[in-house]
């Protein structure tokens, strides 16, 4: 993937969810806000795109599915410059 053209704010796609089925006519569209946990052991991982810092490379968008076919360990943590 090409290196990002750098700006202060760069939107990323975030979670990449399967398209919702079309709504019946007249139905109220659900909000796009995603807050529900969808990840399940034994189920397919939810794809996403996020910007990353990679040592020796710089800033780059990374999609989880870029690594399909490999074992992946994904680690969340509360914050840079903290204590644990």
């Amino acid at each position: 993937m090409p290196e990002l053209k750098e700006g202060c704010v760069k939107p990323t796609r975030g979670p990449i969810l399967p398209a919702l089925p079309p709504l019946p006519a007249g139905a109220i569209s659900p909000t796009q806000e995603v807050t529900k946990m969808l990840a399940r052991v034994g189920k397919e991982a939810i794809d996403f795109e996020a910007t990353a810092f990679i040592e020796g490379v710089g800033f780059q968008p990374v999609k989880l599915s870029d690594y399909k076919g490999k074992w992946i360990v994904l680690c969340f943590y509360p914050g840079d410059f903290t204590f644990v």
Partner: peptide, 21 residues
């Protein structure tokens, strides 16, 4: 409440299936 991601860790296999969290 804290606005952060807590310490979650996921193992994903080559078929893109979550094997552990």
């Amino acid at each position: 409440a804290a606005g952060v991601d807590i310490r979650g860790r996921f193992i994903i296999d080559p078929d893109f299936v979550i094997r552990a969290m």
